[in-house]
């Protein structure tokens, strides 16, 4: 509560929306990593989850649909001292912003991206998204979607991220622990949170209440190690309808903004310029 802009509460999220739980888990992870909110700048795109930074007492950019990660790239390179956190959703990050997501992972830029995957477009009233499970109902898939969904965490691992984890909103402790690790990782960190949209996903897909939704997460969540073993044993079919949770990668490698700063240092012999817009005189 002490981290929130009290003059903006209550938030606009529907009853039982997972966004608030994820925000709580974020603060818990941040505190346990010993990070002060003052060091953090938040960036988001468009969608319900992208409204989160507006409630937090820190500098924040609420940007255009899908583009949060590109704004965050400029912010981080412009001032590498900022701890930049991106809140995004499945439509924002994986559909309209998919290209920025994979390129940021490729660069391994030190951002912590929290992707709230509720498998639906909530803000616009329940259209299917690139992560909607096959067969699920949305207003734009009234007979059930036949498209194959993205496996976001696997996608981001393949693109080169150095820390990737997936949890659901019913595992807030594991989630905050992963957020702690993500904040600590000096590279591109992606934490996917499978979350509930009771209003637009649940009601259309026989999970009428927030409690029904989180219960289904609890029933279907399977740990990555267990899932890997099933795959190794040729029992992949048993994973249909399951949500694989856990860490997908945790492997450090060279980071983008460090590379940019080091190049400056090499070429001009001085530290990378920050906040230089405020100077009235610069050496040419």
């Amino acid at each position: 509560m002490k981290y929130l802009r009290k003059d903006r509460l209550p938030n606009i999220f529907c009853p039982g929306c997972g966004n608030g739980t994820i925000l709580n888990s974020f603060f818990r992870g941040m505190e346990s990593e010993g990070i002060d909110l003052k060091e953090i700048a938040m960036v988001s795109g468009i969608g319900c989850s992208s409204r989160i930074p507006g409630y937090v007492k820190c500098d924040s950019l609420h940007t255009t649909h899908g583009r949060a990660i590109s704004f965050a790239t400029g912010l981080k390179v412009g001032n590498p001292d900022l701890n930049v956190v991106v809140f995004t959703g499945d439509g924002d990050a994986a559909s309209i912003g998919g290209n920025h997501l994979i390129h940021a992972a490729r660069r391994n830029i030190n951002l912590t991206v929290i992707c709230i995957n509720n498998t639906i477009y909530g803000m616009t009233g329940g259209q299917i998204s690139p992560t909607s499970p096959e067969g699920s109902i949305g207003t734009t898939a009234p007979y059930g979607t036949r498209d194959k969904p993205f496996n976001l965490s696997e996608l981001v691992v393949a693109a080169g991220a150095s820390y990737v984890a997936r949890w659901t909103t019913i595992q807030p402790l594991q989630l905050s622990n992963s957020i702690k690790k993500a904040l600590n990782n000096p590279g591109f960190s992606f934490v996917e949170v499978v979350s509930q949209c009771p209003t637009y996903f649940g009601r259309k897909n026989k999970l009428r209440t927030p409690v029904d939704m989180v219960k289904s997460f609890k029933e279907n969540a399977i740990n990555k190690r267990k899932a890997d073993k099933l795959i190794a044993d040729g029992k992949e079919d048993e994973l249909i309808g399951k949500i694989i949770v856990g860490e997908f990668i945790n492997k450090k490698r060279a980071e983008f903004s460090d590379n940019v700063c080091n190049l400056s240092k090499q070429q001009c012999g001085e530290e990378h310029a920050t906040k230089s817009a405020y100077l009235s005189k610069l050496e040419y």
Binding site: L61, S70, A72, T73, G74, V77, G78, L82, H100
Partner: peptide, 18 residues
């Protein structure tokens, strides 16, 4: 990666103080 992200990054950098 494209011009959309190019101007996005520029806006982000501007708010970083550059």
């Amino acid at each position: 990666e494209d011009e959309i992200s190019a101007i996005g990054a520029v806006i982000g950098a501007s708010w970083s103080g550059m």
